[in-house]
């Protein structure tokens, strides 16, 4: 059989996200939701509450005034921001582990996720056309398929390398040749299982080639460009290195102003270290297992 079916079956072995994520997602756009009721949903989880408040007070998410309660975090940062932070706290432990196949050392997938999230949000703010909050979320989740596909890549790396070297095709195309699917499609399947909103799933599915989507929204192009830039810089770079193709129509659709790529890279580089530091301390407080070296 077919490796693709085996891979998709593996997607269903990834743990579901905690209920609180769905509740926040559901109420994000509900003007009538009670913040005090919603805050209680988070507060039953002591670890989550601690992590949320820490991140809410970090330089990137936070503000001058310190945030001492979940409800105040919602009022000060907005529900969407709180949703993002909770999602980040839930997803981080999975993407902090080393990823075989892609040869990503501990925390490298997460570094790429957070860098791409920040770059996507910055581009959405600068260019318009997409909700910066959606851009952050899609950027953060775009490579989660590697968690599942990594073990398969590990087994078949020689075949993938041969396809890349001999035919000069990009890494994702080689994945499709060998597996019948690629890490972007696997990520989309995983996010569907996690009930992530469709617009974000679509941006993730097409993040290497937005023009393949029949009707690409700016969110797709933004996540693509952000991924390209963060990969170029080397944030969370693994065995697939820069072995991808750029979708030039993406840049044309967004009508990118001059210097935007460099502005984005400079901006992200200043905030990234702090963000990674914050997530590291969360790992320590949540009693995550110590990182293992790549095998």
């Amino acid at each position: 059989m077919n490796l693709k079916r085996e891979i998709l079956a593996k997607v269903h072995t990834v743990p579901p996200l905690p209920e609180v994520v769905f509740k926040l997602q559901k109420y994000c756009n509900d003007p009538n939701v009670s913040y005090s009721e919603l805050a209680k949903v988070i507060e039953v989880d002591q670890g989550l509450t601690t992590s949320l408040l820490r991140l809410a007070n970090s330089a990137y998410f936070g503000c001058e005034q310190s945030i001492g309660s979940v409800q105040y975090a919602m009022t000060r940062l907005g529900l969407k921001r709180v949703y993002q932070i909770v999602l980040a706290v839930c997803v981080a432990p999975m993407s902090r582990k080393p990823i075989r196949g892609y040869d990503l050392a501990p925390a490298m997938l997460w570094q790429h996720a957070i860098a791409t999230a920040m770059a996507s949000e910055y581009l959405a703010q600068e260019l318009g056309g997409a909700d910066p909050a959606d851009a952050f979320t899609a950027g953060m989740l775009h490579d989660m398929g590697k968690i599942v596909l990594g073990n398969f890549v590990d087994v078949d790396m020689d075949k993938i390398r041969q396809a890349v070297d001999r035919k000069g095709i990009p890494f994702d195309e080689a994945e499709r040749e060998v597996f019948g699917t690629d890490h972007a499609s696997v990520a989309a399947a995983l996010l569907q299982r996690w009930q992530i909103p469709t617009r974000i799933v679509t941006a993730v599915r097409y993040h290497h080639h937005p023009s393949a989507c029949p009707d690409p929204e700016p969110l797709l192009d933004i996540v693509h460009i952000a991924d390209v830039l963060c990969r170029d810089v080397g944030w969370g770079m693994g065995a697939d290195a820069l072995l991808y193709r750029f979708d030039p129509a993406s840049a044309a659709r967004l009508a990118l102003p001059p210097d935007i790529a460099e502005q984005t890279m400079a901006e992200v580089s200043l905030g990234l270290e702090g963000m990674m530091g914050f997530f590291q301390t969360l790992g320590a407080t949540q009693g995550q297992p110590a990182a293992q070296p790549v095998g």
């Binding site: 990009p170 390209v228 991808y244 193709r245 750029f246 840049a251």
Partner: peptide
């Protein structure tokens, strides 16, 4: 370095 192909604009 750069991504594959001649299309990357940056």
């Amino acid at each position: 370095g750069s991504p594959l192909g001649p299309d990357e604009v940056f």
